[in-house]
Design a protein around this nucleic acid. Sequence first.
DNA 1: TATGAATGAGAATTCATTCAT
DNA 2: AATGAATGAATTCTCATTCAT
Lengths: 202, 202, 202, 202
Amino acid sequence: MARGRKINSNGERSKQLLLEKAVELFSEKGYHDTKISDIVKAANVTQPTFYLYFESKDSLYNDLNKRFQRGFDEIMSKHSEEVVKGIEGLVRMLKQKIKMLFVYILENPKLTKIGLFESEQSVVVKSQLTQQFISLIHLHDCEHLLQSYCVDINVAVDSFVGSLERLILTTLLEQKKLPCELANELIHLYFLISFSRSAPPL
Amino acid sequence: MARGRKINSNGERSKQLLLEKAVELFSEKGYHDTKISDIVKAANVTQPTFYLYFESKDSLYNDLNKRFQRGFDEIMSKHSEEVVKGIEGLVRMLKQKIKMLFVYILENPKLTKIGLFESEQSVVVKSQLTQQFISLIHLHDCEHLLQSYCVDINVAVDSFVGSLERLILTTLLEQKKLPCELANELIHLYFLISFSRSAPPL
Amino acid sequence: MARGRKINSNGERSKQLLLEKAVELFSEKGYHDTKISDIVKAANVTQPTFYLYFESKDSLYNDLNKRFQRGFDEIMSKHSEEVVKGIEGLVRMLKQKIKMLFVYILENPKLTKIGLFESEQSVVVKSQLTQQFISLIHLHDCEHLLQSYCVDINVAVDSFVGSLERLILTTLLEQKKLPCELANELIHLYFLISFSRSAPPL
Amino acid sequence: MARGRKINSNGERSKQLLLEKAVELFSEKGYHDTKISDIVKAANVTQPTFYLYFESKDSLYNDLNKRFQRGFDEIMSKHSEEVVKGIEGLVRMLKQKIKMLFVYILENPKLTKIGLFESEQSVVVKSQLTQQFISLIHLHDCEHLLQSYCVDINVAVDSFVGSLERLILTTLLEQKKLPCELANELIHLYFLISFSRSAPPL
DNA sequence: TATGAATGAGAATTCATTCAT
DNA sequence: AATGAATGAATTCTCATTCAT
């Protein structure tokens, strides 16, 4: 049977297709239950074609994770506004970042499943996220507030990251709420109730 | 080594050993990266011995999950005290249950990794947990409180479950806090600050 | 040997080769004593190559049986001449069919060993054959003849099938007689002696 | 748990039980699909007990075959009456032998399945049987009769053995006819019709 | 006499990857 | 750029058999 380049074929298109199908399958079935044969079948190419564009299954998976992290990090690391010290500034920045995060995630739901929930890299992503939140608190000089409420900052931030993670999974990715809505509710839950009062509890 | 029974061998011990090593390896490396050959090597027996005590890799893994869930469910489903309606009752019961959960988890850290973080069953466990918390809120007639604070009960509970999950992973299993301590802090974070005041915010 | 495609390799040839060797080995040693490793060794390929062309050992064996049965059924079910009622018509048709059967078998001796003697399917093949002979007798209105000779039709047909089976094994496949010769002798044995007389015995 | 001799246990009984269950299972499922574990489970003993009484699976199977053959040979080789030359003598002896064979088979149906239909030994049994029939024909000086009817003695005898084999399987073992009945019908089919006349066909 | 415990040897099957075209 | 054909290296699981008690 005929071999060689398919009519109308185009390298970039094949690569793109493989990438899409890979993301889809990895996100649905996980790394181990997604076989290269599944991916190429879905992309309607043959196995060697896969190796034309990707070094290995592993390296593709890593690429996908890095790709997710790049978008993620961008949002978390660049502060688009100037920093206003104090709780209000923190809340505003958090709200903004989380909204951006949620938008990004909704734009890349499958990549998110991989990069935030399934891969081993996700562990790193989440602990980085934790660190970044801690940094933000320090940046806004808000440690003392937590202390005055007798809340361990690490516990608070871990809790927050956990909430974020779970709400992304159960509510955002399930499209039960809009990014903006959900971000507001999460922030409300953590900040507005408690910190809307003027004084700390005795 | 010669065939047949080993000197001083004992079936229960072998099974126990295999079980322990399996839990250890599964929790460290996950289902797919733990080979039966790894387990039996660690237990210092041969592969057929594995099949003497377990039906298959899969069924062993399922057993482990069920075993974890049994303990988990027991804590969550049996209310050892009578139900006192209202926020104080809810907080007390939650605190108690979470402490018990934490104790159970610290007693079975590896099983927890498998059953709460790695397996596909863990998805079910967590959504059941969510349902159970929702039931508890209803049981104590506290929905209205959340409403008065403009908090969606589903968001609140998902958030709580996420916090719980993450704190178990980062703090409890890492032995950074004692069960009692961590439970108090988590409850404090979610309830005491906000609900210790008499009136809802305007 | 290096991985990848062999020089001058050709899929159809490989599949054909595997098929041939499989038929050969199955027919010689039976299903259980023929290992996939034997087949691929004989075909000079590796085990995965086997699975490139066949689903499993079992399905290959079934295919082989079906293949045998297809040829067999074709001969037995299609009547190439019109039906002439009476003993002469029956004898002529039987003779013709048995000759065709014998020719088919001599063309596929190994497949026959599998499909008529070794497999579990062979049981079905033979009882179908029995039914087909019974149908032929009815079709030619010859039941009464057997009755007049005090012969139970089932016994007669079973006996005939048994003779057929054994002669195929000991004489046809051993190439001691030609198909035509053997068919004539078998028919002679069963019909000509007895039915060449005009009247039934008293 | 307690080991050692079971209360009320008795070596002969265990061996007998194993033997029975082995015959049963081998006859139903064949050699390969009958596992030692199946046999001992059915006999309610453990695997090592099997090896107390039998050398190996293989040797047990061979024993079973030999046991079948002993009974078979006894019937075929000992002529209980004196030999009367001629076709009548042959028919009488054949009838008698076949009846005895049938009785033996009905008394040992499972052993027969193994020894006459399933095992590799069965091939030998049947070709010996063929030889024995040929000897009987010679012994009664009946070759010329077959010749006068233009029947090849080998074909005739193979045919007869095939009929015998198939009728045993489909009719005798299925208990559709009594041994005596079936033997008469078979002999009738092969001899009485044709040879009951005084003269050979022209 | 009988058993609990164990294993050597191998079986089928899978999968990522590679080579020749 | 793409494919047909092939394989190395596992991996799970089975089964007859054996040893120590």
